[in-house]
Nucleic acid binder design. Structure first.
Length: 607
RNA sequence: CGGGAUGUAGCGCAGCUUGGUAGCGCACUUCGUUCGGGACGAAGGGGCCGCAGGUUCGAAUCCUGUCAUCCCGACCA
């Protein structure tokens, strides 16, 4: 391809709308243009990158025995109603774009394809003899993100590879899951990305085991907690750890476990309370009031007890609440802090915020108009493990010292609800500490189990002649996100440094002075020679000054640059590697011999 | 949705406080000189000043409303 014909428009200034390096560079270098918030046009250079990423993905999926397919993006609501996800994905903070057709039928624009594929599998897969099967597709997905961000990182329309596997039993699922794990590692390595696998929450997709693949980068939106020994890594949403030991409360249990009242005027935070009375935060129990909303309209007040020094992990809480409420009330729509205003609106007596204790009785909800009249009470094990603690007295400006579970109130159900923190000791080896780093989630694999197959009645006949639900796995890669993540990981002050395997072009031939026939002839010659050698080559034949062409070549990030300049008269050209900046001059006749071996190995990425 | 900010030429910005009909740099067009790291000179083209109301003789500027975009939180490949 000739640069003069490439519709290349590069910008000298960073567009104001971009924040992180990869987003700025993709805009500046003419790879993408924003069409609306979270919606981007992939310009020709970008499309080449995406095609290359897709090719790697295809090769590795095919190699793992998966079948490429293409499913509709426009999907009937009925399918999503059967899986129970329609309300959760469209109401509340739902992320599915949805619409009505002219007959008034409801449709959704696919944010993911479990429903469609499972319905198809139920139709087509009748016997264990057909299993296992793994189907994948690469196409645009639509999600009405609450806040699109960072260019392609979090768009409302983006390209994703999604795969779904079907199995006769759990062992087969585990095997494919492990194969996908390996395929994913190869895909990211081949794309030249340093990626780490971490334990993950299964989120809205559901299912049991799940693992995310994170491209490590400062701009990453996810916090990864990993042990120094490399044996444990998890998304903070999911991470577990050992909390610091609690400091024993001086005086222990008092008043038979009822606790002695202590005047604590205005001391509504753990910090104020502890500094005023010399308590350690680990000696306290703090109580959070929240309200969970369910699909069927059920509103469930939550009373969550945590040890004073700990933070709530909202993902863990949502999972716990779902496990306890969804069977009866449908999908959990959201959980929000229960505010004094909301309580007043509901007609409740004033709640002593800042001075609440776990013994707050359901009587506080007695006047509730639309809420459930009983709290769902949960506590983190670090709280329930305390022998004697300080907590709110449920009256303003007063706490109880030396309270104990059992006497004060029954210990609530104990569930892991605390957020693991950097510096925490690891569960697998207390001598190890969790370290934090940031990552961009580019892939996620799930063992779904039978959640969707049961909901959509996708059954097969097993070896014993009995019908049962299919076992399922699903496996996603954000193709467009991956491409931008690669820029985030590979750039410098001059622009992008694409890994060869996903670069839009591998080599750019820059004719320094196009007006010099010797230079332009040699440039043309090398260009066609490289084309014949199956190299993805770009010829900068523009009438620009050399400096402009060099700047553009660096900015758009072509891995190799061949400069045809003054040396052309004596048959010499310069070969420059983008990433290292290494230059060497060599006879044009030796260019291919010098370049092709490096190129060949670099096409393998980090394999 | 809550909190913060910004909308002026394709991109980056000034002008707004103190109303008088729009400017700078880059990019674009033409000519000349230059020609290996975003050249220089000259001459040009391009703007419902986000949109709608209002105040005023007169609004980019003041007021009201609205829309859009970006940043911080809830969502995820």
């Amino acid at each position: 391809m000739r640069v003069s014909r490439l519709m290349l428009v590069t910008l000298r200034d960073d567009p104001a709308e971009a924040e992180i390096p990869s987003h700025k560079l993709l805009l500046r270098a003419g790879y993408i243009r924003r069409v609306a918030s979270g919606i981007y046009a992939y310009l020709p250079l970008m499309w080449r990158v995406l095609q290359k990423v897709s090719r790697v993905v295809r090769q590795e999926m095919d190699r793992a025995g998966a079948l490429e397919t293409l499913l509709p993006q426009l999907q009937p609501a009925e399918l999503w109603q059967r899986s129970g996800r329609w309300a959760g994905y469209t109401a509340g903070e739902g992320i599915m774009f949805h619409l009505e057709d002219r007959q008034g039928r409801e449709l959704g624009l696919g944010p993911t394809h479990e429903e469609v594929i499972t319905a198809l599998a139920g139709d087509l897969l009748r016997s264990y003899r057909q299993l296992p099967v793994n189907l994948y597709q690469i196409q645009s997905k639509f999600r009405d993100e609450i806040r699109p961000r960072f260019g392609l990182m979090r768009g409302r329309e983006f390209i994703m590879k999604d795969a779904y596997s079907f199995h006769a039993d759990e062992d087969s699922l585990r095997q494919t899951y492990a194969e996908m794990d390996q395929a994913y590692r190869r895909i990211f390595a081949r794309c030249g990305l340093r990626a780490v696998a971490v334990e993950a929450d299964s989120g809205a997709i559901g299912g049991s085991a799940s693992q995310e693949f994170m491209v490590t980068a400062e701009a990453g939106e996810d916090l990864i907690l990993a042990s120094g020994d490399g044996r444990y890594a998890a998304n903070q949403e999911r991470a577990v750890s050992l909390a610091p030991e609690a400091v024993a409360l001086l005086g222990g249990v008092r008043a038979g476990g009822q606790g002695e009242p202590l005047a604590t005027p205005g001391q509504s935070s753990i910090e104020d309370l502890c500094s005023a009375h010399g308590f350690d935060p680990t000696q306290t129990v703090k109580v959070l009031l929240l309200l969970a909303r369910f699909e069927d309209g059920h509103q469930q007040p939550l009373l969550v007890s945590l040890r004073g020094d700990q933070q709530l992990n909202e993902v863990k809480l949502a999972n716990a609440v779902t496990a306890r409420g969804s069977a009866e009330h449908g999908a959990l729509l959201d959980i929000s802090p229960l505010s004094a205003e909301a309580a007043a609106k509901e007609g409740l007596e004033p709640i002593p915020f800042g001075f609440m204790g776990p013994q707050l009785s359901d009587g506080a909800l007695a006047a509730a108009r639309s809420w459930s009249p009983r709290f769902l009470r949960l506590a983190d094990p670090t709280a329930t493990a305390l022998e004697a603690f300080v907590c709110g007295a449920n009256t303003m400006d007063s706490h109880l010292v030396g309270a104990a579970w059992g006497s004060l109130c029954p210990a609530p159900e104990s569930v892991d609800l605390r957020a693991a923190q950097p510096g925490d000791r690891c569960q697998h080896d207390p001598s190890q500490q969790l370290e934090a780093s940031r990552g961009i989630e580019v892939g996620h694999i799930f063992q779904l189990g039978r959640k969707y197959s049961e909901a959509l009645d996708a059954r097969f006949t097993n070896e014993a002649g009995v019908e049962e639900a299919l076992w399922m796995g699903c496996y996603g890669i954000g193709v467009s996100r991956l491409a931008q993540a690669a820029v985030e990981q590979h750039h410098d002050g001059n622009g992008i440094c694409w890994p060869v395997s996903i670069a839009p072009f591998e080599v750019i031939v820059v004719v320094a002075n196009g007006a010099d026939p010797e230079q332009s002839n040699l440039g043309e010659h090398l260009y066609s020679q490289l084309q014949q050698a199956d190299v993805d080559v770009l010829l900068d034949d523009r009438g620009e000054r050399a400096g402009v062409k060099f700047k553009d070549a660096d900015l758009i990030g072509i891995p190799w640059r061949v400069v045809v300049g003054r040396g052309a008269a004596t048959g010499l050209v310069e070969l420059v590697e983008r990433t290292s900046g290494d230059k060497r001059e060599l006879p044009a006749s030796e260019l291919l011999a010098a370049l092709l071996p490096s190129l060949e190995s670099q096409r393998q990425g980090l394999l």
